[in-house]
Simulated scan of single mutants.
Amino acid sequence: MVTAGQVIAFAAVIQLGAMSPGPDFAVVVRQAAVSGRRGGMAAALGVAGGVFVWAAAAALGVAALLAASATAFTITKIAGAAYLLYLGARSLQAAYRGSEAPLETMTETVTGGGILDGFRRGLLCNLLNPKAAAFFVALMPQFLGNHPATADTLVLSAIAVLVTAIWFVVLANVVGSLRAFFTRRRVRRALDAGSGAVLIGLGVRLAATSN
Rank of each mutant, 00 (worst) to 15 (best):
177 S>K: 15
202 L>P: 12
70 A>P: 03
80 G>S: 06
204 V>H: 15
101 A>E: 06
13 V>W: 04
83 Y>I: 08
66 L>A: 12
37 R>M: 04
176 G>Y: 04
77 K>G: 00
208 A>Q: 10
106 M>E: 12
58 A>F: 07
40 G>M: 00
74 T>E: 07
15 Q>P: 12
77 K>L: 00
136 F>I: 06
12 A>S: 05
154 L>Y: 03
20 S>E: 11
115 I>W: 11
5 G>I: 05
42 A>R: 07
79 A>T: 05
147 H>D: 02
135 F>K: 00
7 V>H: 14
44 A>P: 09
74 T>D: 15
196 G>Y: 13
48 A>L: 10
60 L>A: 08
155 V>Q: 05
37 R>A: 03
186 R>L: 04
71 T>S: 06
31 Q>I: 00
110 V>Q: 06
182 F>V: 05
57 A>L: 09
192 D>N: 14
11 A>N: 13
188 R>I: 01
113 G>W: 13
170 V>H: 13
119 F>V: 01
134 A>C: 09
66 L>D: 08
71 T>A: 05
33 A>V: 09
59 A>L: 01
64 A>S: 02
179 R>L: 09
16 L>S: 11
165 A>D: 03
115 I>S: 01
135 F>A: 01
157 S>W: 11
134 A>G: 01
187 V>Q: 14
68 A>L: 04
89 A>V: 06
147 H>K: 10
5 G>A: 04
69 S>K: 12
83 Y>L: 09
99 S>N: 01
45 L>D: 01
99 S>L: 04
125 C>S: 07
141 P>G: 04
104 E>D: 15
114 G>M: 10
69 S>V: 02
200 I>A: 15
88 G>R: 02
86 Y>V: 04
22 G>I: 02
140 M>Q: 00
193 A>N: 15
163 V>S: 10
208 A>W: 15
38 R>T: 08
100 E>Q: 14
4 A>L: 11
181 F>I: 05
165 A>N: 14
48 A>P: 11
93 Q>R: 13
27 V>F: 12
17 G>Y: 12
90 R>G: 06
137 V>F: 07
13 V>E: 05
87 L>D: 00
197 A>D: 05
148 P>Q: 01
151 A>G: 08
116 L>E: 03
183 T>S: 02
180 A>L: 10
22 G>C: 09
59 A>P: 09
74 T>V: 09
182 F>N: 07
107 T>Q: 13
24 D>W: 10
44 A>D: 04
174 V>R: 13
134 A>E: 02
201 G>L: 10
161 V>C: 14
197 A>H: 10
56 A>F: 15
1 M>N: 13
210 S>T: 14
128 L>C: 13
146 N>T: 02
45 L>T: 07
75 I>W: 15
154 L>P: 10
35 S>G: 13
138 A>I: 05
144 L>W: 03
49 G>I: 03
123 L>M: 03
166 I>V: 15
184 R>E: 01
75 I>F: 14
82 A>C: 11
148 P>L: 03
122 G>E: 13
195 S>W: 14
43 A>R: 03
163 V>R: 12
112 G>N: 04
147 H>M: 07
88 G>V: 00
19 M>T: 12
90 R>W: 06
72 A>H: 02
127 L>S: 02
119 F>P: 04
162 L>D: 08
113 G>N: 06
